[in-house]
């Protein structure tokens, strides 16, 4: 078994209200920036043991769906790399 690092980006789907993003956009605009839209999500790293990189990615897809995101309102992306 080898260790792999899975990196997840979890964000709200298009059209889902993001009050934190809106508040942050408003403050950026008050500061004078032309910030037209802000969406706030999560960045998550998980180290897993797997036989191959493909297997690690499969695990990543699974935990992304089962725990790290809520498919009703969120999307996620997962990438895999060797863990030193």
């Amino acid at each position: 078994m080898t260790q792999f690092r899975l990196t997840f980006l979890v964000g709200l789907k298009e059209g889902i209200l993001d009050p934190a993003g809106q508040a942050t956009r408003n403050v950026l605009q008050n500061m004078g920036y032309q910030a037209d839209d802000v969406r706030i999500g999560k960045w998550i790293q998980v180290v897993v043991s797997a036989k191959t990189e493909d297997q690690a990615l499969t695990i990543g897809q699974e935990i992304g769906q089962r725990l790290l995101s809520n498919p009703v309102m969120e999307y996620f992306e997962v990438t895999v790399q060797a863990y030193e």
């Binding site: 009050p19 934190a20 508040a23 706030i40």
Partner: peptide, 9 residues
Amino acid sequence: GDYLRSGAL
């Protein structure tokens, strides 16, 4: 709402 970080906004 403590968005971003507490106090940041």
